[in-house]
Amino acid sequence: MREPERGGWYLAVAGFLAVLALACVGLMVYGEWFDRRLVASGAVGVLLVLYAVIVVLFRKAHLTAED
């Protein structure tokens, strides 16, 4: 089901999630630095989930093709 007209919207959301992912990287460094390891591992989890959502959004924006 092609939805080319919403491609820009998907990319905007993906960009926002990428910024959140960067914040998670910051949290990972913070957690490791200050010995708050549950914060660091939680940030790893959120980062992975964000990456997954970004991959889906890229596909819906037709930036990537089927495997």
Partner: peptide
């Protein structure tokens, strides 16, 4: 697919931390 590998691993990290 890689999406579900990333998502599942991420969810497990979140649950294990929270």
């Amino acid at each position: 697919p890689s999406v579900w590998v990333l998502f599942s691993l991420g969810l497990l990290f979140i649950l294990a931390s929270a």
